[in-house]
Amino acid sequence: MEISVGHTPDADDAFMFYGMFSGKVTSPSFTVTHVIKDIENLNRKAKSPELDVTAVSVHACAHIPDYTILRSGGSFGIGYGPIVTATKEMTIEELQKAKIAIPGKMTSAFLLLQLMIGKFDYLEMNFSDIPIAVKDGKVDAGLVIHETQLSYSQEGIIKILDVGEWWDKTTDGLPVPLGINVMKDSFGLETIRKFDKFLQESIQFGLKHADDALEYAMEYGRGKPRDLIEKFVKMYVNDVTVNMGESGEKSIRKFFEMAIQKNLVQKFNLKFA
């Protein structure tokens, strides 16, 4: 069975899919073609839905009723997650009145920040453009994701708020729900679970052959140094990535319970493989 698989041009995604896309982990049931797009682009594609399997933001689940959440391949922060950056210290009250650059309306980072500080004025832009927009004063602050969570000081900006820390404290240590992989419902649960196992085997292969997988991931490192990319990959390819388990599912459900209570998303049905 040939299926299309969408993933982001990010080092952690590349690391997870290394085994699968290098042909070192194979399946008798699936042949895959991969489509590489940034996360907000994949979120929008999933609304159609276009791809058979795709990485999406957890937040996007509120808008993509035709997909089931896979238990493997998720990006969960363990006490850390997106951060808010600026050129100077700002209080939460000041942020609530500020214009904040965000990496997309369907990103989990955007919904997490809304849960933390309430609704705010924002400007959507590609995540990689946010540090420059902050430094140049085009926005008052920027919500950053991916490796900029580690490199912001090199961009000439400072961290003023840690959304991941807030989630960790608010939920008594649940992992921070950021990204997941989903598969079209139309394949049926048996096939979805079969692909889920295939993806899990790819992730486990990457972890067992970390140097090779990291070398592959460096192709998606956007010019960042290897030590930073390695640190980033180790942050977001963890035990919950291999299988989200009870804690991962609980964190996703908690995420949407809080969002529904604050009228940030409409009630909907979550489906897990």
Rank of each mutant, 00 (worst) to 15 (best):
L174P: 00
I64R: 04
F268H: 03
K97V: 10
N126Q: 06
A217Q: 04
I203C: 01
T68M: 15
I39Y: 02
E40C: 09
E94Q: 07
L95D: 04
V237Q: 01
V163P: 00
K119Y: 08
T54E: 06
P65C: 10
M16I: 14
E190P: 00
K105C: 14
G104Q: 03
G81M: 12
L178F: 13
D121P: 00
H59V: 11
T148D: 08
L264Y: 13
D227A: 13
I260E: 13
Y216M: 14
G156R: 06
F256P: 01
E246T: 12
G221Q: 08
A14W: 00
S4T: 11
I117S: 08
V163A: 06
Q266P: 00
S27E: 03
K197E: 08
E190A: 11
D136H: 15
I192S: 12
K194C: 08
I192F: 08
H34D: 14
L228M: 13
K99W: 05
I252G: 05
F255W: 08
V233W: 01
L113N: 03
D10W: 07
Q154I: 10
E257F: 14
F21C: 10
T241M: 15
V58N: 07
T148I: 07
F30Q: 04
G142H: 04
D227T: 07
T26L: 13
T171I: 12
I180Y: 04
I158E: 05
F268E: 08
G206W: 05
T170E: 15
D172K: 09
V265A: 09
L70W: 02
D13H: 09
L207Q: 07
M183L: 13
K169Y: 07
